[in-house]
């Protein structure tokens, strides 16, 4: 695991609030960047990943929820907390449905906020490498429920890039990928994320038998065949996460 500081992105159209949250989070050891609108925030997110995003819900140009939806497409692993001055039931539910971690009322209880950020940062990171977008979204939702921070990569190249940006505890790897195969990624993973536990997911039991044997011999934790038994997959992931913790 790298020793870098956990990162937080703060987005609020009120510059004073950006500065305040930045001051506080920085003082508590976080690496903080701020943006006063959604477009500037997306620019930042395109350049680098963040562990946590604190987003004001009501902003001119692009509201916090729209921003989060766009952000999630770019960086599924960023955990979002939305902040709102006027928490109506609908907005809160919509935000949670979209995958936001929390909706916090204004004025923000800073103690609680710091607690939540700390908790999120402590959640294990997991990278799903699979070209099936629907499967990725399903896994995202299931694993998010289990308190994993789930990042997604849909191609060989995207996976390679994301492996350089973040340390992951667990990697779910599809062996057949556009732009290269999963086996090739094994090496990249060993270099960039030597601690990561790999679970292979594949729908090609017979064709890839040899390959599967190879990846298992090279240290993959196990294989899950599509369509997989979700409980079995979760067990494997939990097991891998526990091994990794010790």
């Amino acid at each position: 695991m790298s020793t870098r500081h956990p990162s937080v992105l703060v987005v609020d159209d009120e510059i004073d609030i950006c500065n305040n949250l930045s001051d506080i989070l920085t003082a508590f050891g976080y690496d903080v960047e701020t943006a006063t609108n959604g477009f500037a925030a997306l620019d930042l997110v395109q350049r680098r990943p963040f562990d946590v995003a604190l987003l004001d819900l009501k902003m001119p140009g692009m509201d916090g929820l729209t921003l989060y939806r766009k952000l999630k497409k770019l960086r599924a692993g960023t955990v979002a907390m939305l902040v709102t001055a006027y928490a109506g039931g609908d907005t809160t539910r919509e935000a949670i449905d979209a995958g936001a971690w929390q909706v916090l009322p204004k004025p923000v209880d800073v103690g609680r906020l710091l607690g939540e950020v700390e908790r999120v940062v402590g959640q294990p990171t997991l990278l799903v490498v699979d070209d099936d977008a629907d499967l990725c979204e399903n896994l995202w939702q299931i694993l998010r429920q289990k308190d994993f921070r789930v990042c997604l990569a849909h191609s060989h190249d995207e996976a390679t890039r994301k492996l350089q940006e973040n340390p992951y505890r667990i990697i779910l790897l599809d062996l057949k990928l556009p732009g290269g195969n999963g086996v090739g990624l094994m090496e990249t993973i060993r270099e960039s994320n030597p601690e990561a536990k790999i679970v292979v997911i594949t729908g090609h039991r017979s064709e890839l038998e040899e390959t599967i044997d190879r990846v298992l011999s090279e240290g993959a934790e196990g294989v899950c065949y599509k369509p997989f038994d979700v409980n079995r997959l979760l067990e494997m992931i939990q097991h891998a996460a526990e091994q990794n913790r010790t």
Partner: peptide, 25 residues
């Protein structure tokens, strides 16, 4: 009013937190 006042209150509250808790400021 809730919206208009909670925004400044948000800054007040976070500044108060900073002043109280960040000793190294």
């Amino acid at each position: 009013i809730a919206h208009e006042l909670r925004n400044p209150l948000n800054t007040l509250k976070t500044s108060a937190y900073f002043l109280r808790h960040v000793k190294s400021a």
